[in-house]
Amino acid sequence: MRIAVLALAALVALAACKEDKPKAPIDPLSLMGREVEWVVTEVAGTPVPEGVSVTMLSPETGMIAGSSGCNRYSGRVEMQDGFLQVGALAGTRMMCPPAQMQVEQAFHSTIGTVKNLRLAGKVLEFSDATGKVVLRASR
């Protein structure tokens, strides 16, 4: 009986010494959720005007898609060296009224500067390499 108790104590001590596997860092892209459409409310510090729709969603891992104000877009997005990397976006090429085209141009110019994102309450904030928020979106 004494040997069994000692063996059990040794097993418990060994189990306590077991190294935990390091936890994988949280992928910021997971904050977007799958098939959740986010409405972009601000681009480069400027609110998106009423009647102009800029949206973003992640239809599958490593992809973003949506409306950029006038046209539909899609593209690759991934984490590289701890930073978000948005690839070239493909899209339709319709012409729209000037207000929509202006927002669309600002969106395409800004999305390429995004390096990180975080969820601040119910708002998804995309920031550049300096940490400045360049896009804001809500559900």
Rank of each mutant, 00 (worst) to 15 (best):
G75P: 06
A129E: 03
L29E: 11
L29H: 08
V40A: 09
T92Y: 06
Q102H: 07
Q80P: 00
L117Y: 09
D27R: 05
G121P: 11
K115G: 07
E19A: 10
D81Q: 01
S53E: 14
S30W: 09
E19W: 09
T55Q: 11
K115F: 10
G82R: 08
V5F: 14
A15E: 06
P49M: 13
L124D: 01
E42T: 15
V54N: 00
R118C: 12
A99T: 04
V40I: 14
M32E: 05
K18M: 13
K18C: 12
D20K: 14
P98Y: 13
F83I: 09
M95A: 12
V86E: 00
A90N: 10
V54C: 01
K122M: 09
Q80V: 06
E78K: 01
L11S: 02
L117T: 08
A88V: 11
A65L: 03
A7C: 05
T92D: 05
D27F: 06
F126H: 06
V12I: 03
N71L: 01
K21Q: 11
V103T: 02
A65D: 00
G33V: 14
V43I: 14
A137T: 03
D81P: 00
Y73S: 03
S67E: 03
A65C: 01
A24C: 11
P97G: 12
P25Q: 07
V54I: 03
T41P: 03
I26H: 12
S138M: 13
A65H: 02
V86F: 01
V54S: 01
V12A: 04
S53R: 15
F107G: 04
I111P: 02
D81Y: 00
L89Q: 04
G33C: 13
A15N: 02
P49T: 12
C96K: 00
T55N: 10
A120D: 15
S127E: 14
D27Q: 07
L124A: 02
E42H: 12
L31Y: 14
G66H: 02
G112F: 04
D27G: 05
Q80W: 05
V77D: 03
Q102W: 07
T110Y: 09
F83A: 12
A88L: 12
R34Q: 15
C96N: 01
Y73R: 00
R139Q: 15
A44L: 13
M94N: 11
K115M: 10
R136Y: 07
I111G: 04
R34S: 14
V43Q: 06
V103Y: 02
T41S: 10
S127F: 08
V39F: 14
Y73D: 03
T92H: 07
I3E: 14
D81A: 03
V86H: 01
M63Q: 07
C70F: 01
V103N: 01
A7S: 06
S58Y: 04
G69I: 02
P97N: 14
G75T: 04
L57T: 14
S53Q: 15
L29Y: 07
M94Q: 08
V133R: 02
L6K: 03
V123N: 02
L29T: 08
K23N: 11
A15F: 05
S109M: 14
R118N: 13
L84F: 08
H108Q: 13
A65V: 00
A24W: 12
E78A: 02
E60G: 08
E37G: 11
